[in-house]
Write a protein that binds this DNA or RNA. Structure first.
Lengths: 153, 153
DNA sequence: CAGCATCCTCGGCGATACTG
DNA sequence: CAGTATCGCCGAGGATGCTG
């Protein structure tokens, strides 16, 4: 990841290079960090799935029901449920067990890495919790300003 | 957030209630955790913007150029750049400064909360780095299995 | 019961052009 | 230089129906 600094004002170039070095140290050779987070936890259901599975082993149908109950709105569709769990399994975060008979019995549980990722998700959620009041007041202040203050930006 | 446990197998009900209590303790009264992460860091550019702004104050045009250089592919469109920064500003993560003249000079820097969130983003990226090898080998193992093993799931 | 194929909707994002 | 409006694309995800 060698960064092209042409077109960037010379005083900023060291900062850019340092940033690139830092990102490289963080393991971003192959894709930018902007993609890491969305790719793992950035979708609608994955973080909630991790939190639920962190409680133990779940049967498919029960998991689906619980996700629907815990979500603020909406249920997870059957198609997406399978898709998300398949991705988690492929990444090594979830272990899937199934019987070959009809009807099949499918259950899921986290692997150690999966539990570790669930911890990260929980940490991020706690961060939001810890800063919720601050964020909310920033929002209302911002919106109030925009209302009384119709100057161009 | 009182959870409806009807339809959930009785042995699992305590787990569901505990989970709900835990989520409540994490501050999820109003929206499910599945939304917190996507809402803040789940999009294509926000985490990268935070990382870059964490290096100091940036002029709009420079920031845009740097984002384009650091991203694995593609540049951020002018429209989205303004939109993302506006959201960050509204949440209280970014302070924007602008002159009223033409052409305007606009610059951005993180607030203390913003720096804190940038730290969280960096932490998550490091997590991915630390587990990259493990994740990669899980993926190749999974894909290999699927190829040789065309049984129904 | 769970996987899969199909169809559809909606939102995120890029591109472009115009304005102050 | 930066903001905004408009347009169009594409992918995430919901709904439905069939199958083992």
């Amino acid at each position: 990841m060698t960064i092209d600094v042409t077109g960037i004002s010379p005083p900023l170039r060291p900062a850019v290079l340092e940033l690139a070095a830092q990102m490289r140290a963080d393991g971003c050779q192959r894709s930018d960090p902007a993609r890491e987070i969305p790719a793992l936890l950035g979708d609608r259901w994955t973080s909630l799935i991790l939190l639920v599975l962190d409680m133990g082993r779940w049967r498919h149908a029960d998991l689906r029901r619980v996700l629907g109950r815990l979500a603020a709105e909406g249920r997870i569709s059957q198609r997406v449920m399978t898709e998300k769990l398949r991705t988690l399994e492929r990444n090594g975060f979830v272990r899937r067990e199934a019987t070959a008979d009809v009807p099949p019995k499918v259950s899921y549980e986290l692997t150690p890495v999966g539990r570790s990722l669930a911890g990260e998700a929980r940490r991020l959620i706690s961060w939001v919790h810890a800063h919720r009041a601050e964020i909310d007041s920033a929002r209302t202040a911002f919106d109030a300003d925009r209302d009384l203050d119709p100057q161009p930006r």
